[in-house]
């Protein structure tokens, strides 16, 4: 059993891309005080949207735009139900994810007559990969850092942008204020609902990017339930990092590697595939346990007066 470690690391970074977007999408809602499980379904819808727009528009860029538009639209649906309709956010998201699972198959069937994948009926488009001059020639590093999808580099930029956005812009400040004390924000005339809608819009764009990566980079078609829990994994990643952008990205990277490990082992060993498939989910569960234990111990120590 030989494993190509360099390819593995490159694969890990690649697999982390949709997770980073998902984590940032969940993060912006969390900063505004909302636990948005709907990212899962939003990404799934965006993935299908990207493929449809690309096929009918005849261009990968129209596809990318389509993914973003669908991400935005689905974000607005959840925002409308929970903010304007005042439905419980958990229930809204569960219901929405349910609709996304069935709805994507339904739409796919109407357009292609297929129920499992669009690969036969739709032309496949791929978001270009970028070779970085100079760096691509460095051994090892070149193979890892260079030649990734455009969206992978965009994910890195998105992390920095999110940090800057929350700290230095007016909307960022208002989002944090709403998340921490909505009544205070409301009392100075900030519309909590409007801030909620803005957060969901940003969340939608990020989900769009995540979905576009899934159906135009990870693979080049849409298939039934292809997101497969990545939205939830992103959600857990930002939860582990307490809603901080950089930490969330690092946690996503960790999960990306688990995902890569699972696929690498599936391709290169004959270990039962079912157990390898469990890896990313088990890793998430363990990560949740570990972060909670750390948080609880820290609090206990302070309360027992040992921190002094």
């Amino acid at each position: 059993m030989t494993i190509d470690w360099i390819a593995f690391i490159a694969e890990g970074i690649r697999m982390a891309t949709p997770l980073v977007f998902a984590a940032l999408a969940a993060l912006i809602c969390r900063q505004a005080g909302m636990f948005n499980m709907g990212v899962e379904g939003m990404i799934l819808c965006s993935a299908l949207g990207a493929v449809i727009f690309a096929h009918y528009g005849g261009s990968v860029w129209i596809g990318l735009l389509g993914g973003i538009i669908i991400g935005l639209a689905t974000g607005m649906v959840i925002a409308f139900a929970s903010l304007t309709g005042k439905a419980d956010l958990y229930l809204t998201c569960i219901a929405f994810n349910l609709m996304a699972t069935g709805g994507t198959v339904f739409v796919m069937y109407l357009l292609t007559g297929e129920k499992s994948t669009t690969s036969g009926a739709f032309r496949s488009y791929q978001i270009p990969t970028i070779n970085i001059p100079l760096i691509q020639d460095i051994p090892v590093l070149g193979r890892i850092v260079s030649g990734q999808s455009l969206l992978t580099y965009l994910a890195v930029i998105a992390v920095a942008f999110m940090w800057f956005f929350l700290k230095r812009t007016r909307v960022g400040l208002r989002i944090r204020a709403v998340g921490e004390n909505p009544k205070a924000a409301e009392s100075v005339g900030i519309s909590v609902n409007k801030i909620g809608y803005i957060s969901f819009a940003i969340c939608g764009v990020l989900c769009g990017l995540s979905g576009a990566f899934m159906s135009m980079s990870w693979v080049t078609f849409f298939m039934k339930n292809m997101v497969n829990g990545r939205g939830y994994i992103g959600l857990s990643a930002q939860n582990m990092a307490n809603g901080q952008p950089v930490g969330s990205a690092l946690a996503s990277l960790l999960f990306g590697f688990t995902d890569a490990l699972s696929t690498t082992l599936q391709n290169q060993t004959n270990f039962p595939v079912e157990f390898l498939e469990m890896l990313p989910y088990l890793a998430t569960i363990f990560a949740i346990i570990i972060t909670s234990v750390i948080a609880i111990n820290k609090r206990r120590k302070i309360e027992q007066g040992m921190a002094k």
Binding site: R168, L173, A185
Partner: peptide, 23 residues
């Protein structure tokens, strides 16, 4: 109606924040 983790200045100006270069 205050946001505890923000500074006094941020709380006072919240809702009518002074801007500079769009930030």
């Amino acid at each position: 109606m205050l946001v505890p983790s923000l500074t006094v200045a941020e709380n006072v100006t919240l809702g009518a924040e002074p801007m500079k270069n769009g930030l």
